[in-house]
Amino acid sequence: MTVLERIVATDEPLLKVDGLTKRYGSRIGCADVSFDLYPGEVLGIVGESGSGKSTLLSCLAGHQRPDLGRIAYDGRDVLAMSETDRRRLSRTDWAYVHQNPRDGLRMGVSAGGNVGERLMAVGARHYGEIRGKASDWLGRVEISCDRIDDRPSAFSGGMQQRLQIARNLVTSPRLVFMDEPTGGLDVSVQARLLDLLRGLVRDLGLSVIIVTHDLAVVRLLAHRLMVMKSGRVVEQGLTDQVLDDPQHAYTQLLVSSVLQV
């Protein structure tokens, strides 16, 4: 069965989020967020700084514990899981791509070691095979194989970000969290990364939750879009519909504030 057939065949959401709320004292991080994410689907979350999109992402990825609500991954209650299980999930089935590659890479470890870490974490003990897989993944993110023993500090920003993606995808995760993955990159580098991500999403049938403030990025990458303001989801729907026919006042403001090129 191809990835696509598998995706089309399932009608069960991979991730079910229900009433997720996180408060910081009296301040709201995010409130009452609910959505379903299906296999192969890319969900964009947009909003300005402080809108709660990053809080939401970190609650979903298990970096923070929400105060209220439920998260079900593949039918399992994530918040009720033991930490061992949750952490195992986050280094096998899940992946997290940080905005700053330095937060997601081990800068003192070679590119090959960075990619191989997740394999070794799940028990790979054959050096040759680990290296072979690392080399394969470097190729897939367009990093020349002869850089396998170089440290990420010798890489450009775009290469570091691609390395971070390879490091995350090597264990074939099904759910990928991305926090502003193209932020801080040159526009031409961004385009290359977007193209790469789109191909990987399609070929591997990844489900992705991508947080960004860049509407152009979500238009090209996300199937669906969620707009957040002051911790709440003010609008969600098909990406192009939300961007071209926004219903909520805030979304209209957001869309009309983008500089046209």
Partner: peptide
């Protein structure tokens, strides 16, 4: 035409078919 920059024309045209598997 609204496409990801840098993608070759051939792949832009093939994209709908690739999405179908």
């Amino acid at each position: 035409l609204r496409v990801v920059p840098r993608v070759p024309t051939l792949d832009v045209v093939a994209d709908p078919l690739l999405s179908l598997g």
